[in-house]
């Protein structure tokens, strides 16, 4: 990915103070970059910190959260910027769509008003112009009869249509970065397919960068160019989607793929669950956060897994994994991954 990233996240940390003085480390040194026209999938389980990281990028975390590291948009640091400047970026150059299409819309305003407000907040213009733009946007996201739909209230629309309205709001100001945070999770598969198609076509048209946050590897597999696998607040493996999902090297990515049932492909085999539970961000294990559940972990005296946090190792161009037992590209091109 030679192009200059539009958005670069480095060493992002998000901690929440917890009662009793302990800090909850929701995001623990996360690196990420996305270039224009590129789609990066961010996959992880509940509590992995992927949503907290996106909220930190948008500057939407509650005040008590402490955010560290660096978030650069077009080379300019966003962290620590005054709220007023962030507000100008949010919904403008940086847009985000959330999971719940029900609660992300104001129930007492028509969808047209809500889209028009997003337009006027960033571009000004008259109410009439903004309304016309809202109709255009609704048409562009595939809402049937947009001229009447603008005057509907959110509860009159189906979940899929509401998610389209949210996407219309998000792309109203031609964002350069579009973040979709589990944006299709609440939708049925056939509707999800519609929405994913929509996102792809918007990207093809506008060339924006897309961050696709999902727990569903299938959603990411279809849409992303690159994938970052997040575990306990860090990226444990990232690289081109074919490499990461086709030939994973990190034990967590491999385990995650092994425990997924398949809808259509491959034989029906017994699944291999991952032992234990995802770690609580309030009590992250020492060393590699995956080591208590890792089948290949070597702990105790001489074993690095519970002693040191593994640094990312490049196993192929653009493909990195943070595991003590991953061989660097020069020695073993295929990256046999974990030791037995």
């Amino acid at each position: 990915m030679g192009a200059e990233p539009v958005l670069a996240v480095e060493g992002l940390r998000v901690t929440f103070p917890a009662p009793g003085g302990a800090a909850v480390r929701a995001v623990d040194g996360l690196d990420l970059a996305v270039a224009a026209g590129e789609t990066v999938g961010i996959v992880g389980e509940s509590g992995s910190g992927k949503s907290a990281a996106m909220l930190a990028v948008m500057g939407l975390l509650p005040g008590r959260a402490r955010v560290g590291g660096s978030v650069r948009f077009r080379g300019e640091e966003l962290l620590g910027r005054p709220e007023k400047e962030l507000r100008r970026l949010r919904g403008g150059k940086l847009a985000m769509v959330f999971q719940d299409p029900g609660s992300s819309l104001n129930p007492v305003l028509t969808v047209g008003r809500q889209i028009a407000e997003a337009v006027r907040a960033h571009q000004g213009g008259s109410r009439g112009d903004a309304r016309r733009r809202a109709v255009e946007l609704l048409a562009a996201v595939g809402v049937p009869s947009p001229a009447t739909a603008v005057d509907r209230h959110p509860h009159e629309l189906s979940g899929g249509m509401r998610q389209r309205v949210l996407i219309a709001t998000a792309v109203a100001n031609d964002p350069e970065v579009l973040i979709l945070d589990e944006a299709t999770t609440a939708l049925d598969v056939t509707v999800q397919a519609q929405v994913l198609e929509l996102v792809a076509s918007i990207q093809a048209r506008t060339g924006c960068a897309v961050l696709l946050v999902s727990h569903d590897l299938g959603v990411v597999a279809g849409l992303a160019d690159r994938v970052a696998v997040v575990y306990a607040g860090r990226v444990v493996e990232h690289g081109p989607v074919d490499d990461v999902l086709g030939a994973p090297v990190h034990p967590y990515t491999r385990a995650l793929l092994d425990c997924l049932p398949r809808a259509t492909a491959g034989p029906r085999v017994r699944l291999t669950p991952i032992a234990g539970q995802p770690p609580s961000p309030a009590a992250l294990p020492a060393g590699c956060p995956f080591h208590p559940r890792c089948p290949a972990a070597v702990t105790g005296p001489g074993g690095p897994c519970d002693a040191r946090v593994p640094a990312p190792v490049a196993v192929a161009p653009g493909h990195e994994a943070a595991c003590h037992f991953v061989a660097p590209a020069s020695r073993d091109r295929r990256g046999a991954g974990a030791a037995p």
Binding site: Q192, Q194, V220, L260
Partner: peptide, 25 residues
Amino acid sequence: LLSAAPEPDPRRERARRRVVLEGDV
């Protein structure tokens, strides 16, 4: 429905042509 179910296999996902149903239930 079957064609809309996503699979965690990027090559298959790209190769496959899914039927996208129009409209809502």
